[in-house]
């Protein structure tokens, strides 16, 4: 659960990146954050993982109060989230397997568990058999799938993606978005910052438009991926989404199963 109340972020140079933002994102939501360049979208994501701290207001993320969080607790906040970046951020000198395993190793997971889980997520993102490849031997779309696998591997509650399709061609972008939708269908909250209007229209779900640091629009688009929840009141900023209103995929897909293991 993510909850922001009257949050403002002023950077040290005086830029007011977010102005008095209030919103809640329930567990299991599929959210697009849209808005022009410089609107404050990345800043919003940075606040969620405590990469930046809010100047004013209240922020609660996955059970952590970020205005009071202790330094040594921040890693545990971050373990509840998987992050996907526009530029993939893979380690060049590691192969696909190690890039994904890395995220588990550095939080102290035993090697045996790592082996099993990495194989699982690589299959999930369709990279089975490419474990030994280096990032530079993969296409942009494949690299982003490695990065997605890495974000997923520690079973986060929330996936946040900052323009995940910004560096890949449209066809592959669709593939990535489809995976994110599938991940969401397994119960993981997904928050995606994007510029790509077509994808937003196609995948739907909750759309939050940030304009010059303020929430300009907060609406739902119902699509085959994300049907409009029945109980929703779109005029309300703080949306009431019970667990049963999250969209369960009609077909029990692979992602839905992996979550329950």
């Amino acid at each position: 659960m993510i909850h922001l109340e009257n949050v403002s972020k002023v950077y040290p140079n005086g830029t007011e990146a977010l102005k008095n933002i209030s919103l809640s994102i329930q567990k299991g939501e599929f959210v697009f954050i849209v808005g022009s360049s410089g609107a404050g979208k990345s800043t919003f994501l940075k606040l969620l993982i405590h990469e930046e701290t809010a100047t004013f207001g209240k922020i609660q993320v996955n059970g952590h109060d970020l205005m009071k969080i202790k330094r040594r607790k921040v890693p545990y906040l971050r373990r509840t989230m998987g992050i996907v970046f526009q530029d993939f951020r893979l380690i060049d000198k590691m192969n696909v397997y190690d890039n994904v395993a890395f995220a588990m190793r550095v939080i102290g997971t035993p090697e045996k568990q790592i082996k099993k889980r990495v194989r699982e997520v690589l299959r999930l993102v369709g990279l089975h058999g490419k474990e030994k490849r280096r990032p530079n031997e993969l296409s942009g779309g494949e690299q982003q799938r490695v990065s997605l696998a890495r974000a997923l591997v520690n079973r986060p509650e929330t996936i946040i993606a900052d323009e995940p399709t910004g560096n890949i061609d449209p066809e592959r972008s669709h593939e990535i978005m489809k995976m994110l939708a599938d991940i969401n269908n397994s119960g993981t909250t997904v928050i995606i910052v994007t510029h790509e209007h077509d994808l937003v229209e196609e995948f739907g779900g909750r759309i939050i438009r940030i304009d010059d640091g303020e929430i300009a629009e907060d609406k739902y688009i119902s699509t085959k991926y994300h049907e409009l929840p029945v109980s929703i009141n779109t005029s309300n900023l703080v949306l009431d989404l019970g667990d049963d209103t999250t969209q369960q995929a009609p077909s029990a897909d692979t992602l839905g199963k992996e979550r329950n293991q």
Partner: peptide
């Protein structure tokens, strides 16, 4: 630094890094 940055983003503790 790049690896450290990734470690921090996936929740490695300072003690571990």
């Amino acid at each position: 630094r790049f690896e450290i940055s990734i470690m921090k983003s996936v929740g490695a503790t300072n003690a571990f890094v």
